[in-house]
Design a protein around this nucleic acid. Structure first.
Lengths: 185, 185
DNA sequence: ACAGCCATGTAACTTGTTACATGATTTT
DNA sequence: AAAATCATGTAACAAGTTACATGGCTGT
């Protein structure tokens, strides 16, 4: 819901049209996360469907502007005020997933997986170090990535220590049940 | 694609049926991320559609087991071997998004947003500190969350310093264009 | 026989993404 | 007039989630 909420909160400043929202999004987020034009429009459609915004008559230039409804304003305020739930963002932690699987699957190359991940994080950190931020917003976004990558490296070390004592294990034998193999197809 | 890839990599151990996959997923990931039964089946359908798995005849208990195709095995190996792209996981960094927006939107309560986020992270850390891990996998997953939360707190401090010198700004005036307000509807 | 779990599925939905189509306006 | 850009949209898809339906098996 990030994009949806971001567009809503920009609209608290006043009515905007589609590409204007895309532009403001870029200006106000350090340009870190490119937003596809198409997504602005689909998101606006969905916001209108949900009663959070309302389309105004086309302006002098034929652009369609949207304004917040009371509902939409409330949603925007709620979003800004509430903290981002740790990893409740619907995104599974793919890295932890991959590492625990690599540790428990016989035949998987745990050391190799860890080495690859460490190397990727190290390279990403190096690339970040060489980046010149344009402005303060950029600095904040870069700092976010840097701290996340550093944490990833720390965690990899810790995980390495913990997993040193873990052995992979095979599939658990499935419980036997009645032998009623329905001859379906 | 986390779930898809995880199921594929479990299937490298041999054919499994739906709920068996769900069980192995739990056993092998620290139980951190609950996997809904329904998603196992929809994912298996899509994997079959994509030619990554193949359904076997029902076994003695009438359960439908799936096995990897050559394609599926290759996909699983590729996934395990390749590092997780930093934030390329499709998940936007909602926290950085929210903070930069709060910093640039006139009328937003930046200090309040930061305080709320800091408090939420602190509380989550405290909850983690009081958790007793069952096994090593659990410890690895908990460590992942802990390091991520610590990094979040560090970043919040840094962002606070950087954003102290940033002032919110209004909407950029949209460029004027021809006055051809097509009287469409 | 009945309750409850095991196992499989389906339909509808969400956010996000891609590729494409269309016109209008500005620039050359 | 042609080319590039602005602006809006549509259609289709992906991954994930939810709620629900169904039937077989198990234990009492």
């Amino acid at each position: 819901m990030s994009v949806r909420s971001a567009l809503l909160s920009i609209l608290t400043l006043g009515p905007c049209y589609g590409l204007q929202l895309a532009g403001e999004f870029e200006r106000r987020t350090g340009g870190a996360e490119p937003l596809r034009d198409a997504q602005v429009y689909t998101t606006l459609d969905r916001l209108e469907r949900d009663g959070a915004v309302r389309a105004l008559a086309k302006d002098d230039s034929g652009r369609v502007r949207y304004e917040l409804t009371r509902e939409g304003r409330r949603e925007a305020e709620r979003w800004l005020a509430s903290p981002v739930a740790a990893e409740a963002s619907g995104a599974r932690d793919e890295l932890a997933l991959k590492l625990t699987l690599a540790a428990t699957l016989p035949g998987a190359d745990l050391a190799g997986v860890m080495a690859a991940q460490r190397e990727a994080a190290r390279a990403a950190l190096e690339a970040l170090a060489g980046a010149e931020p344009d402005d303060a917003l950029d600095r904040v976004v870069l700092a976010r990535r840097r701290t996340a990558l550093e944490a990833e490296l720390d965690w990899l070390d810790e995980a390495s220590r913990i997993l040193a004592h873990v052995s992979p294990f095979p599939l658990a034998p499935p419980p036997k049940r009645g032998r009623k193999a329905r001859h379906a197809e």
